[in-house]
Design a protein around this nucleic acid. Structure first.
Length: 946
RNA sequence: GCCUCGGUGGCGGAAUUGGUAGACGCGCUGGACUUAAAAUCCAGUGGUUGUAUAAACCGUGCCGGUUCGAUUCCGGCCCGAGGCACCA
C-alpha cells in the first residue's frame, strides 16, 4: 500500500480550494447564517506564529463543520497592517512601510493557505488600503459631529531620547519600547474620544452577550465604576469651592484635612505666601516624576501644606489643605477630603505629618439575638469561641463567651496551649462545650485574631456562622479572669450568610479603637459615632441621609466615577490613518467634507518624528498647508494619525461588504450577518480592542448605522502556546517554533490536529515535539484503515461509531477539541483491529474532515467517491445504538468497590441484588452481617451498606 | 492589597445533575522484525505491600464537613498563573 504523501496531497487540495472557492460566504442566502471571526493579524516581519495556527484552526474546524451541517458560514480574514514595527523598520532601512507591509502580507497569506484554513479570501481586507481607511476616517467624522471627539491638552508619555510621544502601549515598565530611555510626561494637545460617555452601557450590556466570565469581569474592573457623592468644600477667605468625589460620604465628620493633587488648578491661588516656596518646589518635583516613579515610591507618602484652610460643610470645622502626589489629577476632581481614621492612605499621611485623626465609625455592632434569628441554632446564639494570642509570648489561649452578648462575660478557658496545634485544640473545646459535632476555626491574623466558626447539628444539618474579633489578652499566662475594662474585644456580631448588619452595642469602643488606630485605618462598615445627629446609624443609612442633607444645602449630590479614561486617539506617527481635520485660524477645528475622503497618507522622505514631537507628516509643508473647508481661508492639517486600534474597531463590519464604495457596509447585508456569532481573540485585547470596538459599535448603533447594539454575540479566548521550556516564545530566547517547518516535516493536518490535541483550548499549553509524532501516527493509521474494509460491521463497531459521532459533534460545539480528537483515536484504534464497512469509514472521514481536511478529501476520492467531503452531510447519531447489551456493574460495600458483575443491560434490580449478594467477593466483606441498605444506580453501580 | 482562573501519574491531560479516578497521547520498560538503527507492531506502565498471573491498603494541593459513596458539593487554609493597582 502506498504511503500517505502529505506534501503532494496537501498542495493538491489547497489548489482545488483556491480554484473552486467552496468556502465563499453568500450574501442574500436563504440559509441560516453563521459568522465566525478571528482577530486579524498584524503582518509582522516574523511571519505566522504557532499561536495563530491554534485559533485559526479551532474556528476553521467549527466553520467547516457548520458548513457541512448546511449553514451559510462567513469566516473571513484580513490584515491589521498599520503599526509601529513597519514604521520602525522604515526608519532603519528607508523602505516604505507600504512596501514592507505588502511583502509581509504575502508571506502570511501563503503560510495560512498552506494550513488549509477555510477563509473566504474574496473578502480579504487591509486597514492600510485607502478604500478601507476612508471609512475609518468617515466614522471618526461622525464621532466628531456628535461631540464625541474633542481636542484636549493632556500629559502624554514622552521619550526624551527619541523625541517622540509614546502611546501607553509603547511604554514598557516606564521605559520607551524602542530605546529604553525613561519616559517622561509632556503636555500636548491630543484628540480624545469620549468612551466614558458609554461606560455604563459598556457594563450593563455585558449581560446581553455570551463572553467568558473572566472577560466580563476584566472589562467591568477596567471601567471601574464607583458610586458615591460629589461634595463641595468652601475655601476659607476665598470664594472658591473645592469639589471632591467620595464613596464614603458617611465619614464626612471625620474629614480632618483636604489633599489636592499638585496639578490642581486652585493650588497656586490659595497657597499662602509663607508656603509658596515649598509648594512650588513640590510641584516641580512631582512634575518631573514619571508614572513609574510615582507608583514605585508609594511606600512613603509625601506632601506639603498650602497654608490655606477649607470648611468642613457638616461641622464647619476649619481643616488644612495640603497637596500630595498620592492624589491623582486624573481621577475624580484631583482633590480629596481626607478621612484618616477610615482610609489607609489618609491614615498614613496623617500619621506622617501629625494631622488630626477623628474616628467617626465604630465597627462595633451586634445583632439582636433575642429572639433568635431565623437560621441560627440555639447553641450558636449563646456560645462563641475564638482564640487569642499573646503578642509577646506568642502563646494561645481560648476564649469563651457566655450569656447575652451585650453584657459580655468572659472567661479564659483553655489557658495557654503551648506547642499543641491551637486550631485543633480550640475545635475540640468548642465541640465539647457546645455539643456540636464539629467545628472549624477559620481565620486568625497576626495579633488580632479573627475567628469564625461554622457548626452543624447532627440532626438538623443547619449551618451557622459567627465572627469573633479578638485582641491580645493581658496576663494571659496567669489564666485569670480578665476584668471587663481590660477586655479588648471590639467586635462581635452574628452573620447570616454574607450579611454583616446589626445593631450597635457601644461598650469600651473608644478604648478599643484607639488601640487599633495605631496600626491601621478602620475601613470596614459599622455605625456612626462623633457625627452629631447621624450617631448610631449604620453606614448605609447614613450615606442615604447625609447625601440628602448635602443636596438640600446645595453642597453635594450623588455621583458616579470611573477608572476608565477617555481614549487618547492621537499618535505622533506616520504609519496610521491621517485624522481628517484641519485647523483654520478663523473657524478653529473643521472636519473635512465626507466627499473628500479618503485623506490619503502622503509619501514622506523621512519617517523619524520631528524635534517638536510632531508626527513626520508635520514636515511636509505642502501637505500640511491647505484651505479651510468652511471659509476657504488658510488652514493647516492635523498631522497626528490614529492609533492602530482605530482600524480594528470596526473591521468585522467591512467583511460583510468589503467592496462597497458608497457606504462602509450595506444595511441589508448587515442585517443578515450581524452580530458576529463567535469571536476568538487573546486575553490581552480584553480591555483595549474589545472595549474600543464595542464602544464604536454602540455609537454606530445610536446613529442607526448598524442593526445591533453589541458587535459580538460570543467571545472566547485561546490559551497561549508556550515554548517547550515553558517560557513565552520569543526571538530573544531563541525558542520560537516556526509553523512552516512543522508543516514541511509533518504536514498541515498533523500540525492542525496536534494543536487541537495539546490540551484544553482555553488554557496555555507548552509545545512538545513528541506529541506531534503521536498525531502523525494517528493520521497514518487512518490512511492505512481504508484497506481494512468489511462487508458488515460488528455491533461493537456500530456502537462505537455512534458514540464517536456524538462525542465529536458535541465536543466541537463546546470547543473541546482535545477530547474530540481522543474519541477519533479510539475509533481508529478499534477499526485497525477489526475493520469496518466502507459506509462506516466514510462517516468517520466526514467527522475527521474539519480537523484534517486534506487527508479527508484525499481518502474520500481514494475510496472512489466523487466530489468533496465538504458537500456531504454531517452524520447523525442514534443514542439507542450506543448502548451495548452486556454491561459491567461495580458493586460497592460500604463505599468501596469489591466486585464487578458482568450482566445484561436490562437486568432487573432484584436480580442484580441477588447476584451481588451471592458473590463470593462481596460475601467476604459482608462478614455474615445483613445489609442495612442497598442502593442501585441504574446501569452504573450497586452500593451495599452494612 | 483587590479581582479572576487553576492545582489529578514521569509529562500533556480525561472524568463534574456526586457513582469503576487516570480515557487518549507522550515518555519509559520488555518483546517481535532488522546485520544494525530508525520506522512499525505486540505487551506492560499511579504508589506501597505481596504467596508479585491471587489479594490488600494508600492515592486527585492541605485540614475539616455533608454522603452508602466526594477529583466533583460545603467551610477554611496553602501554593501557582494572569489582570488591576495610591481610583478617594
Amino acid at each position: 500500500m502506498k504511503k500517505y504523501d502529505y506534501k503532494k496531497v496537501e498542495k493538491k487540495w489547497q489548489k482545488f480550494w483556491e480554484k473552486n472557492k467552496p468556502f465563499r460566504a453568500e450574501d442574500g442566502n436563504k440559509k441560516e447564517k453563521y459568522y465566525y471571526l478571528v482577530e486579524f493579524p498584524y503582518p509582522s516581519g516574523e511571519g505566522l506564529h504557532v499561536g495563530h495556527v491554534r485559533s485559526y484552526t479551532a474556528l476553521d474546524i467549527m466553520a467547516r463543520k457548520k458548513r457541512i451541517q448546511g449553514f451559510n458560514v462567513l469566516y473571513p480574514i484580513g490584515w491589521d497592517a498599520f503599526g509601529l514595527p513597519a514604521e520602525n523598520y522604515a526608519i532603519k532601512t528607508g523602505k516604505h512601510p507600504k512596501k514592507v507591509t505588502e511583502e509581509n502580507v504575502k508571506v502570511y497569506k501563503n503560510q495560512i493557505q498552506s494550513l488549509g484554513i477555510s477563509f473566504d479570501w474574496d473578502r480579504e481586507i487591509n486597514t492600510t488600503d485607502p478604500e478601507y481607511y476612508k471609512w475609518t476616517q468617515w466614522i471618526f467624522l461622525q464621532l466628531y459631529k456628535k461631540g464625541l471627539a474633542y481636542k484636549k491638552k493632556m500629559p502624554i508619555n514622552w521619550c526624551p531620547s527619541c523625541k517622540i510621544g509614546l502611546a501607553n502601549e509603547e511604554v514598557v515598565d516606564g521605559k520607551c519600547e524602542r530605546c529604553d530611555a525613561e519616559a517622561e510626561k509632556k503636555e500636548m494637545e491630543q484628540w480624545m474620544l469620549k468612551i466614558t460617555e458609554y461606560a455604563d452601557r459598556l457594563i450593563e450590556d455585558l449581560e446581553t452577550v455570551d463572553y467568558l466570565d473572566k472577560i466580563k469581569t476584566q472589562q467591568i474592573n477596567w471601567i471601574g465604576r464607583s458610586e458615591g457623592s460629589d461634595i463641595d468644600f468652601e475655601v476659607k477667605d476665598f470664594d472658591d469651592r473645592i469639589k471632591v468625589f467620595t464613596t464614603r460620604p458617611d465619614t464626612l465628620f471625620g474629614a480632618t484635612f483636604m489633599v489636592l493633587s499638585p496639578e490642581h488648578e486652585l493650588v497656586n491661588k490659595i497657597t499662602t505666601s509663607k508656603q509658596e516656596k515649598e509648594v512650588i518646589k513640590y510641584q516641580e518635583q512631582a512634575g518631573k516624576k514619571s508614572d513609574l516613579e510615582r507608583t514605585e515610591l508609594q511606600k512613603e507618602k509625601t506632601g506639603v501644606f498650602t497654608g490655606a484652610y477649607a470648611i468642613n460643610p457638616v461641622n464647619k470645622k476649619k481643616i488644612p489643605i495640603w497637596i500630595a502626589d498620592y492624589v491623582l489629577a486624573s481621577y475624580g476632581y484631583g482633590a480629596i477630603m481626607a478621612v484618616p481614621a477610615h482610609d489607609q492612605r489618609d491614615f498614613e499621611f496623617a500619621n506622617k505629618y501629625k494631622l488630626e485623626i477623628e474616628q467617626v465609625i465604630s465597627p462595633m455592632f451586634i445583632d439582636d439575638i433575642n429572639p433568635p434569628q431565623e437560621g441560627f441554632d440555639e447553641v450558636c446564639r449563646d456560645t462563641v469561641l475564638a482564640f487569642v494570642r499573646d503578642k509577646k509570648t506568642k502563646k494561645y489561649a481560648l476564649l469563651d463567651w457566655h450569656g447575652t452578648l451585650d453584657g459580655i462575660t468572659t472567661t479564659v478557658m483553655g489557658g495557654i496551649d503551648d506547642g499543641e496545634d491551637p486550631e485543633k485544640a480550640a475545635r475540640k473545646e468548642l465541640a465539647e462545650e457546645a455539643g456540636l459535632e464539629n467545628v472549624t476555626l477559620i481565620k486568625k491574623s497576626n495579633w488580632i485574631t479573627e475567628a469564625k466558626y461554622c457548626a452543624s447539628h447532627k440532626k438538623e444539618n443547619r449551618h451557622a456562622k459567627a465572627h469573633a474579633f479578638l485582641f491580645e489578652v493581658e496576663n494571659l499566662d496567669k489564666q485569670k479572669e480578665i476584668p471587663e475594662k481590660e477586655q479588648k474585644i471590639h467586635t462581635l456580631y452574628w452573620v447570616k450568610e454574607d450579611e454583616v448588619e446589626g445593631k450597635l452595642v457601644p461598650p469600651h469602643q473608644k478604648f478599643v479603637w484607639q488601640q487599633i488606630l495605631e496600626e491601621t485605618a478602620l475601613t470596614q462598615g459599622g455605625h456612626l459615632m462623633n457625627s452629631g445627629k447621624y450617631d448610631g446609624m449604620n453606614v448605609g443609612e447614613c450615606i442615604e441621609n447625609i447625601t440628602k442633607w448635602l443636596d438640600k444645602q446645595n453642597l453635594g449630590k450623588k455621583a458616579t466615577n470611573y477608572h476608565l479614561r477617555d481614549w487618547v486617539f492621537s499618535r505622533q506617527h506616520y504609519w496610521g490613518e491621517p485624522i481628517p481635520m484641519v485647523y483654520c485660524e478663523v473657524c478653529g477645528w473643521v472636519p473635512l467634507k465626507e466627499e473628500d475622503l479618503p485623506l490619503e497618507l502622503p509619501m514622506v522622505e523621512k519617517y523619524l518624528p520631528t524635534d517638536t514631537g510632531e508626527s513626520p507628516l508635520a514636515s511636509i509643508e505642502d501637505w500640511v498647508k491647505t484651505t479651510c473647508p468652511k471659509c476657504k481661508g488658510k488652514a493647516r492639517r492635523e498631522t497626528d494619525t490614529m492609533p492602530n486600534w482605530a482600524g480594528s474597531s470596526w473591521y468585522f463590519l467591512r467583511y460583510i461588504d468589503p467592496k462597497n464604495t458608497e457606504q462602509f457596509a450595506d444595511m441589508d447585508k448587515l442585517k443578515y450577518w450581524t452580530p458576529v456569532d463567535l469571536y476568538n481573540g487573546g486575553m490581552e485585547h480584553t480591555t483595549l480592542h474589545l472595549l474600543y470596538s464595542r464602544f464604536w459599535h454602540k455609537f454606530l448603533y445610536d446613529q442607526g448605522l448598524v442593526p445591533t447594539s453589541e458587535p459580538y454575540q460570543r467571545r472566547v479566548s485561546h490559551g497561549m502556546i508556550l515554548a517547550p521550556d515553558n517560557q513565552k516564545m520569543s526571538k530573544s530566547r531563541g525558542n520560537v517554533i516556526n509553523p512552516d517547518e512543522i508543516v514541511n516535516e509533518y504536514g498541515a493536518d498533523t500540525l492542525r490536529i496536534y494543536e487541537m490535541f495539546m490540551g484544553p483550548y482555553d488554557q496555555p499549553v507548552s509545545w512538545d515535539t513528541n506529541g506531534l509524532r503521536g498525531v502523525k501516527k494517528f493520521l497514518d493509521k487512518v490512511w492505512a484503515s481504508r484497506d481494512k474494509q468489511n462487508k458488515q460491521d460488528s455491533k461493537e463497531v456500530v456502537a462505537l461509531l455512534h458514540k464517536t459521532i456524538q462525542k465529536v459533534t458535541e465536543d466541537i460545539d463546546k470547543m473541546h477539541f482535545n477530547t474530540a480528537v481522543s474519541a477519533m483515536m479510539i475509533f481508529v484504534n478499534k477499526i485497525q483491529e477489526t475493520g469496518c464497512t466502507k459506509e462506516t469509514f466514510e462517516k468517520f472521514i466526514i467527522l475527521l474532515s474539519p480537523f484534517a481536511p486534506h487527508l479527508a478529501e484525499e481518502l474520500f476520492s481514494a475510496l472512489g467517491e466523487k466530489g468533496s467531503v465538504a458537500e456531504q452531510s454531517w452524520p447523525s447519531f442514534d443514542k439507542s445504538k450506543v448502548a451495548s447489551e452486556q454491561i459491567e456493574i461495580p458493586v460497592q460495600v460500604n463505599g468501596k468497590i469489591r466486585d464487578k458483575l458482568s450482566v445484561s443491560a436490562d437486568i432487573s434490580e432484584a436480580e442484580l441484588k441477588k447476584l451481588a449478594l451471592d458473590s463470593e467477593k462481596v460475601q467476604k466483606f459482608l462478614e455474615g452481617k445483613k445489609p442495612k441498605k442497598v442502593i442501585y444506580v441504574k446501569g452504573r453501580l450497586l452500593s451495599i451498606v452494612v
